[in-house]
Design a protein around this nucleic acid. Sequence first.
DNA 1: GCAATTAATAAATGACTCTTATAAAAAGAG
DNA 2: CTCTTTTTATAAGAGTCATTTATTAATTGC
Lengths: 388, 388
Amino acid sequence: MTSAATAPLLRRLNAETVLNVLRDVEAIRHTELADAAGLSRPTVDAVIEDLRRIGLIAEVEDDTPGRRGRPARLVRFRAERGHVVGIDIGVHKCMVSVADLRGVVLTTQVRSLGQELGRKERLDGVRKAVREALKQARVERSAVLAACAATPGIVDPRTGVVLTCDVLPDWKGLNLRAVLGRSFGAPVLADNDANLAVVGERWRGVASTSEDVIYVLAGERLGAGIVSGGQVFRGHDGGAGEMSFLSLLEHTPGAEGIGALASHIGKEVVARLREHTSSLTGDAALLLAAARDGDTEAQQVLEEILARIARAIGTMALLLNPELIVIGGGVAAAGEQIAEPIRRRLPRMTSLPPRLEVSALGDKAVTVGALRTALDSVESSLLDNLNA
Amino acid sequence: MTSAATAPLLRRLNAETVLNVLRDVEAIRHTELADAAGLSRPTVDAVIEDLRRIGLIAEVEDDTPGRRGRPARLVRFRAERGHVVGIDIGVHKCMVSVADLRGVVLTTQVRSLGQELGRKERLDGVRKAVREALKQARVERSAVLAACAATPGIVDPRTGVVLTCDVLPDWKGLNLRAVLGRSFGAPVLADNDANLAVVGERWRGVASTSEDVIYVLAGERLGAGIVSGGQVFRGHDGGAGEMSFLSLLEHTPGAEGIGALASHIGKEVVARLREHTSSLTGDAALLLAAARDGDTEAQQVLEEILARIARAIGTMALLLNPELIVIGGGVAAAGEQIAEPIRRRLPRMTSLPPRLEVSALGDKAVTVGALRTALDSVESSLLDNLNA
DNA sequence: GCAATTAATAAATGACTCTTATAAAAAGAG
DNA sequence: CTCTTTTTATAAGAGTCATTTATTAATTGC
């Protein structure tokens, strides 16, 4: 049942709208703040006092020249009040970003991880990457107010437990919140990587104006993050957006993602290409490069692969009717070479075809979304203690 | 931007929780009400006074015998304060329900409509059915506080315009809210039938405990209503849940639904069955009956059809990870004959298979959901005018 | 008729908000 | 250098809403 709506709730709500104004601005006069927030002056003053007490804002000198009248006091958001950490745990690498409370990224560290690493070794790698990043950003561990970790697989966002994970088999059953929580004195959140990527893309990417978005993480795996009405769609166990069984490869279960498709469908072509190159890039990248160079066989295989992926994306577009689909993950680097053939096919599969764009954040989308999620958690818990 | 949070907001919120208690109870003492709502006594008294002023509650005598102490005043929800109308506009028929503000259904009228009817004639049929239902329920038109209409096709819930409608071609572009609004002096809402059915099934059906549900409307058409986190998932244009392109019939676009599948896949079998029966039932019903009677050919065809439908349902279950899937629409009458073969196949298609149950409300799910939607609209607009 | 019991009413308090009035601090004009 | 103008800060007053704590009212049971 809903608890009683009592007066402090108003303060909390108004503090929230004031913060929303403050976060997007360098410094602001009390008067302007009142106007922008749609609140009266005394209310804003009271809110400011509250926020100052918990360290979220500070006073600043008004050095604007040529202003007459009594000089105004300015307030600014104290982004340095604390920091958040965003962690993207992948199969081959781990990316860690550190940001201040405004979300300004101080550093992003990437650490490569062996694909065959066990649970403990992988977690050690993650912890080392975090330590490295914090050192680089000159942020004390005690200054971290929240962290958020992304992982492939299905994560129960309430508990932080990895329910299933195809690509990291021994990851299953891991309580990410608990094991990483010991590294911080702050709450650790955990979620699926595609879910966080769509949050990132909505915060600072191509989806910033859209409330109904699907982010397709197309790399070695294929997964989706779904946002509807501005809210992440997780499903009952956090498993929404899984595409593993979408029969991209008929009769080859378990082989998902563009890399796998390239290896299977274009086996001969890839083998031929591999002879003429010494690079260590994946099959997908090889195929894309060859197709760009005019290799007609490679182009044919690529078309076939993209047709299958388009079918999966079209299925989602039909069922979920998003406004926008964002292509992200490893293949996003190929840009329009990937996007255009998919976009071309969508109208055949749904009567209301969505826009389709390539990720603006690239492989950083996941950590950016993790940072945003951690920031939300920090702000809400700070506001919970307004009157304490 | 969010408007200022001012004191009356508290009253509104508390009035809402009080109302939530009152609606589910015959009559209640002020004291008990305060306990149940988690509010103080003076607060509920004030809320009660507000609600009494807008006619939503009334005082009632406490005739409980053998209670000592000063007799309590009781309040009851005035369900007779107004009425709502739920309308299910289908291809073959129109169903209209009238209910009071507690949602008690006073009458349900069904009027059959010719499949070939034009826009105007069909709307006339709907209006006649409404008139009939109101007369039957002895409800004045002026006592109707809101109505909600369901229709196949994609409806923009903001405007009430039918964007597309496969089964009623000339329905496209119709502003249902506007054309039906003239029949009432009250707001008319409009939504897709499957969206409303899932609301109904969550209100008074098998999905009452679940926050993540997919309702599959399986009749001549195949459509789905999706609820996630208790909210209807509509998509950007209201088109979420469409399944028309899900390649149930490869190379036979436009032929969706069980009836169509039966006609196509089981063409010969259905023809044979038709010779031995004089009934006018649809192909699907014919097939189901024959399969029940042990006709092995019919059983084979049915298995094939259900396999395809299971694939579509499995695809949704994979992508959306619901807790529960409800099978509704015409075929729901077949019960476990339909449900079991689909249920059996789900674990092959998703690692987190949902529960699958047959609709409890049958063909009334849509109107029940329409009533609930209309009720929500009424209550929110009544509460908006609390302080006026 | 007198406890005991239960409920209604009233009063006091505190947390919010808003509007309006008053005081303060600067720039610019004479 | 003083006075006006302009802008901001502070204070006061009123109104709404909620809570807790008396106080009063209306019964039942003895």
